[in-house]
Amino acid sequence: MLFCQEKEISSAGPCIRLSSLPPGQRALVISVPEHPLLYSLGLRPGKVVQCRGCQLFGGPLLIKTGDRQVALGKKIAEEITVNLI
């Protein structure tokens, strides 16, 4: 087994896409698409993430997960749902 099943995450607030998370706002990851790197980079259901900002010209989002920083293409960010906290 490579990936654990999606955990049941109790959602308190409204679900939004990670791509529309405003900079500086923290959020709880609810679901992520299947991708070989997302889990390894700390983007897993139940993790708290923070948007550090978005690059110009349709560039990637900068996401803080724990102590790490990840650059994330908009298309993937649209497939990740999060919950504001």
């Binding site: 997302l38 980079l41 790490r68 990840v70 650059a71 993937i76």
Partner: peptide
């Protein structure tokens, strides 16, 4: 195709 950006900084 170009892979979607996903990298650790």
């Amino acid at each position: 195709t170009r892979a979607e950006t996903l990298m650790e900084i």
